[in-house]
């Protein structure tokens, strides 16, 4: 499955709820304010293991809009909109954590 998260973990618990229920083959794509979760910050440990496994993606346009391109945590994979579509096709069911 593909899980999209569009909220900052500093403001909402969307990411935590996603992490609580994600299975071993799913991936997470951060979009909109969700890309704040891809930055190296006090909450980075929440996703560090998944990132190491190559299962954390972030939408490049949203990262650039927030000026955090140089601040990303390790092993975050950036995708453009075409890459977003590829993730949807590859992972089937999508869950949107709004």
């Amino acid at each position: 499955m593909l899980h999209t998260v569009n909220k900052s973990s500093f403001e909402r618990n969307s990411l935590q709820s996603c992490l609580n229920t994600i299975d071993d083959s799913s991936v997470i794509l951060f979009i909109e304010d969700g890309v704040i979760n891809a930055a190296n910050n006090a909450n980075s440990s929440m996703i560090a293991d998944l990132a190491t496994e190559g299962r954390i993606f972030a939408l490049q346009g949203d990262v650039e809009a927030r000026g955090i391109s140089s601040k990303l945590a390790d092993n975050i994979k950036l995708v453009d909109y075409a890459g977003f579509v590829d993730l949807v096709v590859e992972h089937g069911t999508a869950v949107s954590w709004v």
């Binding site: 346009g61 650039e64 809009a65 927030r66 000026g67 140089s70 453009d80």
Partner: peptide, 9 residues
Amino acid sequence: VEGQETDGI
């Protein structure tokens, strides 16, 4: 934050 680029969104 410095360096916000919104062309992509």
